[in-house]
Simulated assay, not measured.
Amino acid sequence: MGNRRNDLLDAAIEVLGGSGMHGLTHRRVDAAAGLPAGSCSNHFRTRDALLEAVVERFADRERHNFEAILMESVPHGPAELAQVLTRMAHDAVGPHRTLTLARYAILVEAGIHPSLRARLLTTGARVNAYFMAWLRLAGSTDPDRQAPLIMNYWTGVVLHELAVPDPAFDPSEQLTSLVTAVFGAEVPT
């Protein structure tokens, strides 16, 4: 078992991903972590403090999940990048579904609470830098332009699959078409 703080944050992610923002309470996190009442509030005095810590924790967990995928396949071209993105999408809606649902719940909440928005921008900058490196490995000549196009599409595909699950979910063809088109597109001068 990890340290108590991370156990509480992982339990908060489970509660958030399973019950949404309205279900997230200190008491429910304590119960999900199997810890005595008051444990969560001892570490995170306010709900805002808990949410800000959850943002850091899910960013670390997602980065770890993405690194595990890349350990198996580093993208060396648009088609391979599309394969990695497909694997990431399956991972996000499958074994890490609750983590992904928690991320989307917090993204929506950030639209209402600027303090969360600031935290997401910080963790998002690290994710963006990571993805830019993947794009360069895959042969991108303009990752600043291409990254938002690809990742925003990927985010939408994953969100749609979470909301309306399809047993035959396979975004590989669309992702391959998108990545190939984005890599081949020239910016008009």
Rank of each mutant, 00 (worst) to 15 (best):
G2Q: 13
N3F: 05
R5Q: 11
R5M: 12
N6F: 13
L8K: 01
L9Y: 04
L9D: 02
A11W: 02
A12K: 01
A12F: 02
A12M: 11
A12C: 10
I13H: 01
I13M: 09
E14S: 13
V15I: 15
V15E: 02
G17C: 09
G18W: 00
S19V: 00
M21C: 06
H22M: 12
T25V: 01
V29Q: 04
V29S: 07
L35Y: 03
A37Q: 04
G38T: 05
G38K: 07
T46S: 15
T46M: 09
A49N: 14
L50M: 09
L50D: 06
L50A: 02
L51I: 00
E52H: 09
A53H: 01
V54N: 00
V55P: 07
E56D: 15
R57V: 00
R57F: 00
F58T: 00
A59P: 07
D60F: 03
E62I: 04
R63Y: 05
R63H: 12
H64R: 09
N65S: 11
F66H: 12
F66P: 00
E67C: 11
E67T: 14
E67M: 04
E67D: 15
A68G: 04
I69E: 10
I69A: 04
M71N: 12
S73L: 11
V74D: 00
P75A: 06
H76N: 08
G77D: 06
G77N: 09
G77A: 07
A79K: 11
A82M: 04
V84G: 02
L85F: 02
T86M: 01
T86P: 03
M88E: 04
M88T: 00
A89C: 07
A92K: 14
V93D: 08
G94Q: 04
H96P: 07
H96A: 14
R97V: 04
T98R: 13
T98M: 09
L101N: 15
L101T: 13
A102S: 09
R103M: 10
R103P: 02
A105V: 03
I106Y: 05
L107R: 09
E109Q: 15
A110W: 00
A110M: 11
H113N: 13
L116A: 10
R117A: 12
A118F: 08
A118N: 06
L121I: 12
T122S: 11
T123M: 10
G124Q: 11
A125I: 06
R126T: 03
Y130R: 09
Y130K: 05
Y130C: 03
M132D: 14
M132C: 12
W134N: 08
L135Q: 01
R136Y: 01
R136L: 15
L137M: 10
A138Y: 08
G139P: 07
S140Y: 10
P143R: 10
P143E: 12
D144G: 09
A147Y: 14
L149S: 12
M151K: 00
N152G: 11
G156L: 04
V157H: 00
H160I: 01
L162W: 05
L162F: 03
L162S: 05
L162D: 06
A168N: 05
D170Q: 02
P171M: 07
S172K: 08
E173H: 06
E173D: 01
S177P: 00
S177R: 15
S177I: 00
L178V: 07
L178M: 12
T180Y: 03
V182E: 11
V182A: 11
F183N: 02
F183Y: 13
F183P: 07
F183K: 03
E186T: 14
V187L: 12
